[in-house]
């Protein structure tokens, strides 16, 4: 498969490349543009981005791998990041974790066979007053209970079935 971005993404990249006093600053924003469009920054994307900046692929990979939110391989349609840090621990996020594992039939780090859900744990997401919480793609879901999680997961399942993956 050849690497191709949408016209919209190309335009956004063009804007970022000319936006900063030093072009290198555009690297993180370019990662995000590619990530938003492809769901990850894979090896082809790394080569492409290295070309934009005249960096080696190794340099690009070095920066890319520093940040947990940037994936190098595509994941499920809904990436569930459940917070495991102290405030969520005190508010028993582990009950939510076992519930999610039961509902999705996956372990942490895995994607469901139908490709709809990926389950992962995250460090503090700054939602400690409303713990336990999870980030799904880029939205926060707070004050979680088992019931609410069931509802949410069912809703996403339905949505994935109607809209396709």
């Amino acid at each position: 498969m050849s690497f191709e971005l949408s016209e919209k993404a190309k335009k956004e990249i063009e804007r970022e490349l000319g936006r900063y006093p030093v072009k290198d600053s555009a690297l993180l924003p370019v990662f995000w543009i590619v990530h938003n469009e492809r769901g990850c920054v894979d090896d082809e994307a790394v080569e492409y981005i290295a070309g934009l900046f005249d960096f080696s692929a190794a340099k690009v990979l070095g920066v890319l791998s520093f940040y947990w939110m940037l994936r190098r391989k595509s994941a499920g349609k809904y990436v569930i990041s459940l917070c495991k840090n102290i405030s969520c621990y005190l508010r028993e996020y582990e009950n939510i974790l076992t519930h999610l594992q039961d509902l999705l039939k996956v372990q942490v780090g895995e994607t469901t066979k139908d490709g709809v859900f990926t389950l992962q744990l995250a460090e503090c997401l700054g939602s400690c007053g409303t713990a336990p919480m999870m980030m799904v793609n880029n939205r926060y879901y707070e004050d979680l209970t088992r019931e609410r999680v069931t509802e949410l997961v069912e809703g996403w399942r339905k949505e994935a079935m109607t809209n396709g993956k």
Binding site: I86, S87, E123, C124, G126, S127, C128
Partner: peptide
């Protein structure tokens, strides 16, 4: 870049 666990004021 508020990331200290337990901190959510800048948010």
């Amino acid at each position: 870049d508020e990331s200290e666990p337990g901190t959510f004021k800048d948010r």
